[in-house]
Computed example of a mutant assay.
Amino acid sequence: MLKVRRAETLGQVTDGEAHLHCHFAFGAYNDPAHMHNGRLRVVNQVSLPAQAQYVAGPEKNVDIVTWVTQGSVTTQCEHFHAETINKGDIQVLCTATGCTGLSWKAGAEAAQLLQFWFLPDCKGGIPMQEIRNTSGYPDTTGFRIIASGFPDDDPEEEETIRDGAPAALLGSGRLLHTTLSASEGARYQTTPGRSLFLLVVSGTVTLEGTTLDAGDSAAISEQQELLIIAQSDASVLLADTAYDAS
């Protein structure tokens, strides 16, 4: 089952100087038809003018994955030192028992970021933060796991983080990424009872004969395998979560 959402139909929210395009209901954007996809609760594209700040929270019991697609942002939370994340970097913030003072501030140039909010399996715990530069991920065709709540996705326990190791989520979900040249394809297979959500970051791809352009998304349910083919050079993110959204 495939449910496509076109970029021009997304909800829009203005929060201070930040402008958000929302795939699911968020803040002032109320949309009963688009509430979540499995245990993926939020997918937002956030645009920030130079030096502008996006503030969220307080938040608890959610894993927030931030992917910077343009410029750089300084991220801050009461539990952690301020950190700068640049284009191509990801931040995973597991809010656990609760975090306040969450903010992402653009640098000297305008910035854009994508945020995926995952529901963890259990409530509570200690807040955690990881920041990774994805340039260290293997440069191979296909989907690469960039964040995961499955220990088997990173079986080696080392004090030093290996290049390409996924950042840790508290929930049993994954966020994956692929970059494809025109005519290249990427296949992904999951297990029964999972929900998939695909977002085209840039370029154009086809999925089951349907063309998806930059900003378009597709929610996939009752399907364990998908194959995308790039019609032009493309960057794609894919979330894999449990179907249950309780």
Rank of each mutant, 00 (worst) to 15 (best):
Leu2Glu: 12
Glu8Gly: 07
Thr9Phe: 09
Gly11Ile: 07
Val13Thr: 14
Val13Ala: 09
Asp15Val: 15
Leu20Ala: 04
His21Ala: 05
His21Trp: 15
Cys22His: 03
His23Ala: 09
Ala25Tyr: 01
Phe26Tyr: 07
Phe26His: 05
Ala28His: 11
Ala28Gly: 08
Tyr29Gln: 07
Asp31Ala: 08
Asp31Gly: 05
Ala33Met: 13
His34Ile: 09
Met35Gln: 13
Arg39Gln: 12
Arg41Ala: 07
Arg41Ser: 11
Gln45Asp: 04
Val46Gln: 01
Gln53Phe: 05
Tyr54Glu: 06
Asp63Asn: 08
Ile64Met: 09
Ile64Phe: 03
Ile64Asp: 00
Val65Tyr: 00
Thr69Ser: 03
Gln70Glu: 12
Thr74Glu: 08
Thr74Ile: 13
Thr75Glu: 11
Cys77Asp: 06
His79Pro: 06
Phe80Ile: 15
Phe80Lys: 10
Ile85Phe: 06
Ile85Lys: 00
Gly88Arg: 05
Gly88His: 03
Gln91Met: 12
Gln91His: 10
Leu93Lys: 05
Leu93Cys: 03
Thr95Tyr: 00
Ala96Glu: 02
Thr97His: 03
Thr97Asn: 10
Gly98His: 03
Cys99Asp: 00
Thr100Asp: 13
Gly101Trp: 02
Trp104Phe: 14
Lys105Cys: 10
Lys105Gln: 15
Gly107Glu: 03
Ala108Pro: 06
Glu109His: 15
Glu109Ile: 15
Leu114Val: 14
Phe116Val: 15
Leu119Met: 09
Pro120Asn: 11
Pro120Met: 11
Gly124Gln: 12
Ser135Lys: 11
Ser135Asn: 11
Pro138His: 07
Thr140Met: 11
Phe143Pro: 03
Phe143Gly: 01
Phe143Ala: 02
Arg144Pro: 08
Ile145Phe: 04
Ile146Asp: 00
Ala147Asp: 04
Ala147Trp: 01
Asp152Arg: 09
Asp153Gln: 02
Glu156Leu: 15
Glu157Ala: 14
Glu157Tyr: 10
Glu158Ser: 14
Glu158Cys: 13
Glu159Arg: 11
Asp163Gly: 10
Gly164Gln: 04
Pro166Thr: 08
Gly171Asn: 02
Ser172Val: 07
Leu175Ala: 01
His177Pro: 10
His177Asp: 06
Thr178Trp: 05
Thr179Gln: 08
Thr179Ser: 02
Ser183Asn: 13
Ser183Tyr: 07
Glu184Arg: 08
Gly185Thr: 13
Ala186Pro: 06
Ala186Ile: 06
Ala186Tyr: 02
Tyr188Met: 06
Tyr188Pro: 07
Thr190Lys: 02
Thr191Gly: 00
Pro192Asn: 08
Pro192Gly: 04
Arg194Gly: 00
Arg194Thr: 12
Phe197Gly: 00
Leu198Gly: 02
Leu199Lys: 08
Ser202Val: 11
Gly203Pro: 04
Gly209Thr: 14
Leu212Thr: 09
Leu212Ile: 11
Ala218Ile: 12
Ile220Pro: 03
Gln223Leu: 13
Leu226Lys: 03
Leu227Tyr: 15
Ile229Asn: 04
Gln231Asp: 10
Gln231Leu: 14
Asp233Gln: 14
Ala234Met: 09
Val236Ala: 04
Leu237Arg: 02
Leu238Phe: 02
Ala239Val: 13
Asp240Tyr: 06
Thr241Trp: 03
Thr241Phe: 06
Tyr243Arg: 10
Asp244Pro: 02
Ser246Ile: 14
